[in-house]
């Protein structure tokens, strides 16, 4: 069972109207792995996450999660499956009308009949894991960006999922928060024995923590390998991407993104 892949993506294609986004993607992810999916903007990374979570239907191909084909499930079965998944959104997506404590307790209250005293213990344990036990009484608007994302992380591990997907977890963070989040992803994945999929632009930070990397460009897997293989790769695309070179197979593509990030323009693009 452990050697079997938790997630299998087989020949997956998706088009938006007539515009193809993904074109025959294949992936394997084992339990306990942290897998990064990298690629330029609009290369279909987020679409891939939405396909894995069953939020949208693929045009062809399929995604298998723990042996079940995600998009063939009924609505109820899909919701049952999603209890085994967690997702960390780009800016955390905390419920702004609930306190930090209630945010983390949300899923426990919705999906279990645990007594409130046990929920309290669980919530404090989850918050302790992300180092924010002392902030349980705060409201989301009182948190910094990095703290909000840590709370969101605590919320997504509330029901001990088998898989957590991170949609650009490093966007808009200072270097300290950035490495805190990076290390948390690694540590929680190992401690809880789950699988993590990290969609990111941040090459250097993610190469430190991941087990395997997929590069997506123009809707196909352009390259994949372990961080070591990636760093030493001489394939022009990977080399350009990892080292952030201005010119290469993708002229001006990624550097433009980097500039935008430097100006923190991404924060405005809510």
């Amino acid at each position: 069972m452990t050697s079997e892949s938790l997630i299998e993506v087989n020949n997956l294609s998706f088009s938006y109207d007539t515009r193809p986004i993904l074109n025959g993607v294949n992936m394997r992810m084992q339990r306990g792995q942290v897998v990064a999916i990298m690629g330029g903007s609009g290369s279909g990374k987020t679409t891939l996450l939405r396909l894995i979570s069953g939020a949208i239907q693929p045009t062809s191909g399929h995604v298998k999660f723990a042996g079940e084909v995600v998009h063939e499930l009924s609505r109820d079965a899909l919701f049952r499956l999603r209890r085994k998944m967690g997702m960390l959104f780009q800016f955390g997506a905390l419920f702004t009308d609930l306190s930090v404590y209630d945010n983390v307790a949300f899923q426990m209250r919705e999906h279990t009949n645990l007594p409130e005293s046990m929920i309290r213990d669980l919530v404090l344990m989850k918050l302790h894991a992300v180092g924010l036990r002392g902030a349980h009484h705060l409201m989301p608007n009182e948190l910094s960006g990095g703290m909000a994302r840590r709370v969101a992380l605590a919320r997504s591990i509330a029901l001990d999922p088998m898989l957590i997907m991170y949609d650009e977890p490093f966007t808009g963070l200072d270097p300290i928060s950035l490495s805190v989040i990076g290390n948390l992803i690694r540590r929680l994945t190992d401690a809880l024995g789950m699988t993590s999929i990290v969609v990111t632009h941040d090459v250097q930070e993610s190469l430190k923590i991941v087990d395997y990397v997929y590069f997506i460009a123009d809707g196909v897997i352009a390259a994949h390998g372990t961080p070591k293989e990636v760093r030493e790769s001489v394939a022009p695309f990977v080399h350009q991407f990892v080292h952030g070179e201005e010119d290469g197979p993708v002229p001006f593509h990624y550097p433009a993104q980097s500039y935008e990030k430097d100006l923190e323009l991404e924060d405005c693009r809510v």
Partner: peptide
């Protein structure tokens, strides 16, 4: 709530 992905997050939590 929709713009800040709170509704999507809720959907992902099977709510």
């Amino acid at each position: 709530m929709k713009a800040t992905e709170q509704l999507a997050a809720m959907g992902m939590m099977a709510v």
